[in-house]
Design a protein around this nucleic acid. Structure first.
Lengths: 72, 72
DNA sequence: CAATCGACTATCATTTATGATAGCGATGTT
DNA sequence: AACATCGCTATCATAAATGATAGTCGATTG
């Protein structure tokens, strides 16, 4: 699978987990200590995010890192 | 778990998989299309690598992305 | 002994992720 | 009608990842 496809799918997974917890973009980005537009970028798969960023999100969503990247 | 700890563990996992396949740093970095020192940086956990970089490595090592980050 | 190979460090330029701000359109609420 | 909230875009500066080069050290080999 190609990189951009993976990034889009990771973004979708994050969004699904966020919505399942009834969190707004604002809510989640607040808890992750960054701004809403940055989270949107991630959920849309428009950024090649780092493990560090992914880890923050995983911890706030209370899921394992591996779950977020399990998209293949 | 803290970010740097995760990065170090991911590096160790990459190294283990590389050695299990009897590949030198040169071999693997060649197949990933980047230079050996960059791979060393990754295996030592000295860089907060992106999904794109991790994906390249996963594909060459023939493992899932999720396996490489499954360190918690 | 010279030469090659492996793991590694330090360092550099370039690209890009990150963090942040301002603003838009739609929906909802008072 | 005014205002807040939500999802979203565009854009910016700064920090940092990436890609690359040169060189060190130890071990092995011709």
């Amino acid at each position: 699978m190609e990189k951009n496809e993976v990034l889009v799918k990771i973004g979708i997974k994050i969004r699904e987990l966020r919505e399942a917890k009834n969190l707004s973009l604002q809510d989640l980005s607040d808890k992750c200590d960054f701004e809403k537009p940055n989270l949107i970028r991630i959920e849309k798969g428009r950024t090649n995010l780092t493990i560090g960023t992914l880890l923050k999100i995983a911890q706030v969503l209370n899921v394992r890192l591996a779950e977020l990247v399990d998209v293949e």
